[in-house]
Design a protein around this nucleic acid. Structure first.
Lengths: 263, 263
DNA sequence: CCACCGCGTTTAGCCATAGAGAACAAACTT
DNA sequence: AAGTTTGTTCTCTATGGCTAAACGCGGTGG
């Protein structure tokens, strides 16, 4: 029995126990609770190992056991929200996004780049979005992602494409580098990006980037099911509102921010 | 050199590496980023140990390194928000709480019990609250906490008091068990709890519990600085709105919920 | 009613590995 | 340029994380 892990992704992982713990935690997140045996087979370690991890996490307050099943506690909410709260972009955007959600009557997202993917940092005005708040998204296949990519310099975009490729998430996903670059140029000029089912079928999206000192620290997007995001007037109006909201966030960031760092 | 940890809280911790990792993570959260040496002295382990932990966490995507400092990524947001999203109470409450925030023009909180403390599961309508969203609160020294305690049975309250005591957080904190029990009785009858600077000086609060099948799964609270939470009319109006909001959440939970579990 | 799973938990014990410590390199302050 | 201080790498070994096997219990079905 001597394959070490289920998968060989131990690149740079020097403390195995941590990798195991997070595999357990992620499984608990995805299944909304689980038992020891279940986790042991899923993660690929012995029952007693899982038990040790769980009891440790439980002693630390990150996991609870109720009626035989283990589940994550809100300790992770404390970790996650604390980081978000420290983001100047988030605090500067929040109320403007709420207003935008109310006037458009659609789901409004704040997306930030992290590494080579995007994160839904905040959402307001709807719960029907397929990717949950806090979840990740592909930068090349979403309006918000493209709005961010548009303000990266060419070499960085090149590296991004080389590293991640342009996998097709739907029929509409832009998979050709040249086509993507064309779009990015126009997005940079107009400050608007669109997504018509490139990320999720029948899901449309308008986004505008928030750029501080040339750096796209995030993007505001409005999204909804394709059948509701129709009509020229509405579309144009929404687009205008998204752009002006993003712009006003930029301005309020410049005002407040003398030396604090961005994002 | 043979004291093991800085503090001897290794009760039930059988995988030391996990405890170390979470100490590092919590330090990163509290300081909003830190360096290796800094963390090593703070946590009380060697630099190389910290380095190993950080590079592992970094490989797993929970930590990034930018310009020399390590900081938490939004991976924790994904863990934390995923749990919240699964809470029927949260999803059932959200829009009602937003409405409440708009009509009262004050900060509205949703608090849930976890173990022997409370957690601010959601907040809307203000950012001046001293305890951040996702943060913990003492059940005996807050309106929302007392609203929850009021619907625990006597033995559980007794155990709670024995385990945690009733530490005074301000001059106004209720520290006498008998006095607390008196308050709880009246809270259970009226379905309203008050906090006039018992948790934080000059910070007032009104709360009403959400009770499902006799179990207080959470509480709705409205809070603000003492000078703004004055005036009989406003106070009575607010109280009424809080109670009716909590009640309406109860009802919508009962409607949707046939067999799904609570909290 | 009892044998039988299945579960979470506990117990031994070996071997890997997590961590200490020192040496290194690069980025600073002086 | 010398002197600090940082992050990183290396080596080594006692620690502690992990496996395997056994335990106790609650539920199920014969």
């Amino acid at each position: 029995m001597y394959y070490k892990r289920t998968m060989g992704d131990d690149e740079g992982v020097s403390v195995q126990a941590i990798a195991t713990t997070f595999e357990i935690l992620e499984t608990l997140r995805d299944r909304d609770g689980a038992g020891v045996t279940e986790l042991a087979t899923e993660v690929g370690v012995s029952k007693s190992a899982v038990y040790n991890h769980l009891s440790t996490l439980s002693a630390l307050g990150y996991v609870t056991q109720e009626n035989g099943r283990y589940r994550l506690t809100y300790g992770f909410l404390q970790l996650g929200l604390a980081i978000r709260e420290r983001s100047p972009l988030y605090t500067a955007s929040k109320s403007a996004l709420q207003t935008l959600a109310r006037t458009t009557n659609e789901t409004v997202n704040l997306v930030v780049p992290e590494g080579t993917h995007g994160v839904y940092l905040y959402r307001v005005g709807g719960d029907e979005h397929p990717i949950p708040e806090g979840g990740q998204l592909a930068l090349h296949a979403s309006a918000a992602g493209k709005a961010i990519l548009a303000f990266w310099d060419a070499t960085r975009v090149k590296e991004f494409i080389e590293e991640r490729g342009l996998p097709a998430l739907t029929d509409g996903t832009v998979t050709d580098p040249a086509a993507l670059r064309d779009q990015l140029r126009s997005i940079r000029d107009r400050r608007v990006a669109f997504d018509r089912g490139e990320q999720i079928p029948d899901w449309q999206c308008v986004a505008s980037p928030v750029v501080v000192e040339g750096d796209p620290i995030g993007a505001v997007s409005v999204s909804g099911p394709a059948d509701r995001m129709r009509g020229k007037r509405l579309e144009e109006d929404t687009t205008g509102l998204v752009v002006s909201t993003a712009k006003s966030i930029e301005i309020s960031l410049l005002e407040s921010d003398g030396r604090t760092n961005t994002v």
